[in-house]
Amino acid sequence: MFPTLQLGPLALPTGPFTLLLGVWLGLWLAEREADRLELNRDHVSALAMTGLLAGLVGARLGYALAHLDAYLVDPLGLISNNLATFSLPAGLLIGVGAAWLYGRRQRLPLRVTLDALAPALGALSGALALSQLASGDGFGAPARLPWSLYLWDEWRHPTQVYALLAALLVFGAWWRWGQSAFAGFGFLLVVAGTAAATVFIEAYRGDSALLAGGWRTAQVLGLLVLGASLILIKRWHDAQPPTDGPRVDR
C-alpha cells in the first residue's frame, strides 16, 4: 500500500490522486459518448463538472453543518485542505441536484444524457477500487487464500482487487451491450452491475458499517439500488415502441 507518494517536500495522497485520474478519464469517456449519442459534448462535460464541483462544496458544507460548533470556532477550517472532512451523503445530494438543474436548464434529454455518463461512472468505480488499494481502505476480512493480500497485519481477502475486477466486468458489459439497447439502458446497466457487485463483494469486506442485527449497510443499499435499476430497466424497456423505431427519451 502506498497511501502517500513523497515528491520532495510534497506528500501526494495517492488515494485522492487516483480518484482525480478517474475523474479525468471519466470526463473524457463521457465526452466521447456524448459525440456518439449526438449530444452537445460541451454541455455534457459542463454538467459533469457542475455536479462534481457542487458535490465537493456540498460535501464540505454538509460536514461543517454536522460539526457546527467546531466550525464556528474556526470558520477558516471550511477551506482546509484536509480530505477527511467531507460528508458523502450531502455531496451526492447536492452534486446530483446541481447536475440535474444544469441538465434541465440546457434541455438535455435525461435518459440519453445518463447514457453518456455511464462509462464515466464505470471509470470512477474502477478508480475508487484502485484508490482504496493504494490507501489500504476498503480492506477485506481475514482469510488464508492463495490470492490473499497482507494488509494491516493480517492476510485478507483482496476486496479492492475484487472491486476493480468487478468494475472492469461491468465496463465490459456496458461496452458489449450497453450502447445498443433503448435510451437509458447503458446507464442502468452500469448502475445495476455496480450495485450487484457491491452486494456480492461487501460480504468479504473487513470494515463494513453495520446496521442493527449485523446487516451490512452497503449490501442493503446495494440491494435497494439494484432493485430500483431493474424496475427502471423493465419500465423504460416497455415504454419503447414495439418496432425497431428510434430511441425515445421521455
Partner: peptide, 19 residues
Amino acid sequence: DSVLIGGPLAEAVLRSKVA
C-alpha cells in the same frame, strides 16, 4: 478513529474529529 495524513490541520478539523 481517524488517520489524518499531512497538514497543517485546521483547528476545526481537530475539533470535529474529537467532538
